[in-house]
Every structure is written in structure tokens, then in C-alpha cells.
Design a protein around this nucleic acid. Structure first.
Lengths: 334, 334
DNA sequence: GTGCAGGTCTGCAACGATGTAGCTGTACGT
DNA sequence: ACGTACAGCTACATCGTTGCAGACCTGCAC
């Protein structure tokens, strides 16, 4: 059996509660008493039982992180950083994979997972704002990403439209005029595909270049999505001199397909992505992309969530945070 | 306040303990009583308090996963699969990043993290077997990877030597004779660099090709490690017609550097890796590598650990499991 | 009719911590 | 000298569940 507070109390010759008070930094304890307790703790090798503490206090000191799949590099890198920041504030992160399925997202929001955590970092991909609002419960939730931009929720996101516009402007500045966009989804402008597409169109308008719907291709946000999307453009005979993948995976997949089919990069086609995942730097050619400030997103979302949990952030409105972005010009689109 | 068992008991007109018995599938309950309880649970929307259950039962139904860094693709993919398998058996996975630092590994082994989990999936990178044995405590631990091959521990690993030999043999079969090895560390043959290097040497011996120490280069197991390692070979003027990166990241980094310096792949140099991470398929050229059976590793390690936790696996000896591997021949070394 | 087995259910204690209330003793103002 | 304030500590209840022991009932054997 493990050492309990009771054992410590007996060894130190004080009451159970005094041990608890020492551990919780209660103000009014004589130094001599405190020392007796600390000595007893050290001698017995006592460690607080976190489960018991959770039961009594109602806090677990864990943050829930809901994302679709940890094997997606963007999420893996984000999770890693979130854990680091959470750890610095004395919290752990418990990850739940939703597979982007509404049922899983909902059960992460309401089910036992929720009980285990004091607050949620939530990347909603399948649920809409109304459903989330109806089931979010009383513990704090911070939204990550931009699928949900609703004043009711706290949200930490990136400057999707501005960054997409900046990278499009970069392609235009290098003389490209027919820029294919891969990965667009609906015309919905509240999610990241929509916002990025919007940024692209804004940049075209600013440059006075006409928008051509034939250059916009839907595809999965994965490498094979990008590969087949650019493949279909080539097969259709659609002309283009640049490709903007709405994320790096798409761009890398497209680059791969273009190289296989014998196109020269960036000579024939310039390629740009979005996210600045690690491998963008090491692709051949290295991928021009935009870094959406993941470090900042991780830091600020953890801070916001913990402040909500601990009551330090009391505003009743949802706070919206947008991290800064940075253009990363590399070989694929100099 | 949340609904408790007491509320359910009152609503169903039975005792607290009967509700508990229903939830725990106690054998001797009349169907009619069980139904009353289930109805009350449904009506009140009762959900068991996991913290209280943990305190009472001493089980958390969480598995600890200790790895160096979740942003490393291999670990991210492994973690994702482990979570899926654990979830199928009703367990969650709590991840701890050690940064491969001995202090962090040790605290994951002994500290509060351990309390929160019923068993540990441990990737030891910095600690030696003796230290681990001295601090592993009483809860089950399953080692992942090959840093520790000690009969005292359960171990799930891959066929490092055999797989490395197979891929080396493949390079030899295609006519390559001077195969550089990137990522070797010490001469230690118990860790993965050592085992893979050994497999390489075995394959050379079998083919009657002499081993040349000049072709073995130490480097970090990352893309930039591979890039600078192959760079130093080129700078030194060492001749080689193939590169075997001891993992895919090294191989991809090397490939990148070779392409930048104008070498033709696989014409001038064939490149092979190890791990079959997702991006190996999508690199240009796509990377020949060996798949170490990650799916199998994930499945069997979770099964072994949970069987230990639940007492289904009682052998007192450490069990050693080796997953099968599969050669993935692609463009970089056809 | 009594004894026994065992199905069905109940009550109490316990897991290990924290919250609340209250009990002392000293310092201080008047 | 006495009341008050508060530092410093203790005792007890409590969080929501499960383990243990036993009560009660029914059916069957003798």
C-alpha cells in the first residue's frame, strides 16, 4: 500500500488536515510545523494521490484535446507544442481522436472524456456551432481552427484569408497569372478552405487578375488528394502556371505528381502550400508556404483555456485570437 | 451537481449497491430489477463518475505512453494506432514527452504520471535497463523499440537486423556495391542503429562484399542529419552508389541534399530508408524503404500490456515480440 | 418441519484527499 | 482586566464509487 497523508500526519505528529494545508500552501502555518511535515513527507517518500485529490476537488488538471487524427503531421506538431505549454502550467493533455466523425466529436464533447478533463481544446470538423453550443456543458471549451467562428465561443485561429492572400500575391508578383487552387471545399467562407480561397480571390482582385473557376479543384486535404487534383487538371488540359495547395500536404502531393509527369518546378509550374510543416523545408524542391504561427496558437490557446479554468479570464463573450503568419519563400516558388 | 448513483437508486427504488451491481454486470440480479435501474439511468441521464471509480478501484483505465517527441512522424503514427487499439479495449492513452532526457524518462517511470495510468508503454532512449528495473514499480511496463533488450522486461519490437539485411540485399541485387550507411551511432548492437547496422553487415557478408568503415556515417535521426551526413561524404570525396538511411527521415534528408547537388536518383545513387512513414510514398522520387509492421507493433503491445494489467498474461518472464517487416520497393531504389 | 444452498438485495465501511466549522492560545486595544 | 481578533491547528463530514459481510427469501432434500 502506498503512503497516505494519514501516515505523514502520524509521523509528523500533526493532524491530517495540517499535512493537507502544508501541501496546499496554506498561509498560516508556523515554519516549524511546516518543516516537521516536509521532513515526514521526505522520509516516507509520500506522493499525493491525484485521483483522490480529483474526486474531492473536482479538478483533474488535465486538458482535453480533440482532433481528427494524431498521425496528421499538423496535428501531431500542434499536440506536441500544446503539451509542452500545458506542462509548464502544471497541466497534462489527454488526446482524443475523432476521425472527423460527428458521433465521435459529440461524445468527446459530452461523454466520459469530458469528465476526465477540466477544459477542452476542440478542433471541430464535423459539428456545427449550434450543436456544439447545445452540448458543450459548463466546463470551458476553446476552439482551435476556423471551422467555427461564432461569438459564443473562445477561438484561437490563424489569419487564413490574409495569409492566403499574401502567398497568392507572392505568386502573382513573380509573374504567375493562372494559379490553380487545390483543396477548396464549399463556398462556405467560415471554414479554413473557404477563408483561404477568399484570400486567394482578394489577392487576384487587388492585382486585377480575373478569377477563373476552372482553376479551383476540390480534393481531400492529403497528399493523394493533391496528387489526383493536379492530375485531373493536367488531364483536362486546363492551363496553369502555378499551384496553390490549401495545405502543405496537398501541395506536396501535387508537386510529386507534377514531377512524375515531367514538369519542371518551379520553371513550368510554381507550387505553394500552407502550414509550413517540417517536411516542407526538406521536400525537393523545398516548398514555398506560409507559416501560420503554430507556436503562438499553441501558447495562446493553452493560456486562454487555463485562464478560463482557473477563473482568471472572466469575460463572458467568446474571445477571438488570431496568430500572426509568416511567408516562407523557398525553391518551389521563389 | 451531476446525477449520482444515489439519485439513480432513489429513482429506481433500489439500494445504491444494486445500481453499482447493475453497472458492473454482477451476475445475480433479476431482469426486472436490472431494467428498473437501467430505466432510471436513462431517465436521469446518469453517467458514472470515473474519478470516484478510480479512487475506489485503484484502476484508471488509462495507459501511459512515453516517447521522446510526438512531433516525430514515426511516434505520432504509432501513438495514433496505439490509441485506436487501446480504445477498442476500453482504455485511453495518456502521452508523455520525454525529450529523450533521462530525468524526464525517470519521472515518467516513477512520478505522478505513473499514478494516472494502469500500465506503461515505454520507449526508453536515455535510461539503461538497470535503472529502469530499479524504478519500474509494480505496475506493468511494456518496452517499445529495441534500446532495451533485457529478459526482465516485456518487449515489443521489430526485426531490425533482418529488415536491414533485406533492404541491403535488395540494393546489392540491383548491382550497387558501395552502400553508404547514414545514422549509425555506437557499435552497440542492442539498440536500433546497432541492430540495423549489423543487418547491413550481414547482408554484405552474405553477398561477399567487403565492409568499408568509411561508408558509415553518424548523424541525428532527422532530415537535416541525413542531409549533412551525405553532404560530408560528398565533400570528402568518398565514392558511393547507394545510400541506406537508418530511418526514413535520414534517407529523405539525404535524398534532398543529393538532388540539390545535382545527382540523379536513382541513376547515380540509389536511396533506401527504414520505417515506411507516410511521406516516403509521396517523396520525389518515392522512397524505397522497409515497413517495420507498425500496425502489428501497436496491436500486440496494447494487447500485451492490457493482458498484464488484467492478469490475463501471467508469465513472470519478460515476453519478447517481434513484428514482421515488409520491403517497399519504390522509385528511389528500384 | 427443519436445514441447507444459493439467488437477490441491502448497509456500512473504505479509497485518500479537501472544505467547513470550531477550538485553542496569544497579542492587542481600551 | 477583559473583550476582540486572528494565527494556528484539529475534528469531522464529504466527494461518488466499490468491497465485504450479511439479511432475507425461495426451493429442495431429508
Amino acid at each position: 500500500m502506498a503512503v497516505t497523508m494519514n501516515d505523514v500526519a502520524r509521523a509528523a505528529g500533526v493532524s491530517l488536515k495540517t499535512v493537507s494545508n502544508v501541501l496546499n500552501d496554506y498561509e498560516f502555518i508556523r515554519p516549524v510545523t511546516k518543516q516537521k511535515v516536509l521532513d515526514a513527507i521526505a522520509e516516507l517518500g509520500y506522493e499525493a494521490n491525484l485521483t483522490a485529490r480529483s474526486l474531492r476537488s473536482g479538478k483533474t488538471r488535465m486538458l482535453g484535446l480533440v482532433l481528427s487524427d494524431l498521425s496528421i503531421p499538423y496535428y501531431a506538431e500542434l499536440a506536441s507544442r500544446l503539451m509542452t505549454f500545458a506542462s509548464a502550467r502544471g497541466y497534462r493533455v489527454l488526446v482524443e481522436q475523432s476521425g472527423a466523425e460527428p458521433g465521435h466529436e459529440l461524445s468527446a464533447l459530452q461523454g466520459p472524456f469530458r469528465q476526465l478533463t477540466d477544459g477542452l481544446l476542440f478542433t471541430p470538423l464535423a459539428l456545427d456551432a449550434g450543436t456544439i453550443a447545445a452540448h458543450q456543458g459548463t466546463k470551458p471549451v476553446v476552439m482551435l481552427g476556423e471551422h467555427i467562428a461564432d461569438p459564443r465561443f473562445d477561438l484561437v485561429t490563424m489569419k487564413n484569408a490574409e495569409a492566403a492572400a499574401a502567398i497568392t500575391a507572392h505568386l502573382l508578383a513573380s509573374g504567375r497569372r493562372r494559379i490553380a487552387v487545390l483543396g477548396a471545399a464549399s463556398e462556405d467562407t467560415t471554414d479554413s478552405p473557404g477563408l483561404r480561397l477568399n484570400g486567394y480571390r482578394e489577392a487576384l482582385k487587388t492585382a486585377g487578375v480575373e478569377f477563373d473557376p476552372a482553376l479551383v479543384v476540390q480534393c481531400d486535404w492529403r497528399r493523394d488528394g493533391g496528387a489526383s487534383a493536379v492530375g485531373s487538371l493536367l488531364d483536362d488540359g486546363t492551363e496553369f502556371d502555378a499551384v496553390f495547395g490549401l495545405n502543405d500536404a496537398i501541395a506536396l502531393g501535387a508537386m510529386h505528381e507534377l514531377l512524375i509527369r515531367g514538369h519542371k518546378l518551379p520553371g513550368d509550374v510554381a507550387v505553394a502550400g500552407f502550414d509550413d510543416i517540417d517536411e516542407a523545408r526538406f521536400a525537393s524542391p523545398s516548398l514555398t508556404t506560409v507559416s501560420p504561427g503554430m507556436e503562438e496558437i499553441a501558447e495562446r490557446s493553452v493560456k486562454l483555456l487555463i485562464d478560463r479554468i482557473e477563473g482568471a479570464e472572466a469575460s463572458s463573450e467568446g474571445l477571438h485570437v488570431e496568430a500572426g503568419f509568416e511567408l516562407k519563400v523557398r525553391e518551389s516558388a521563389p
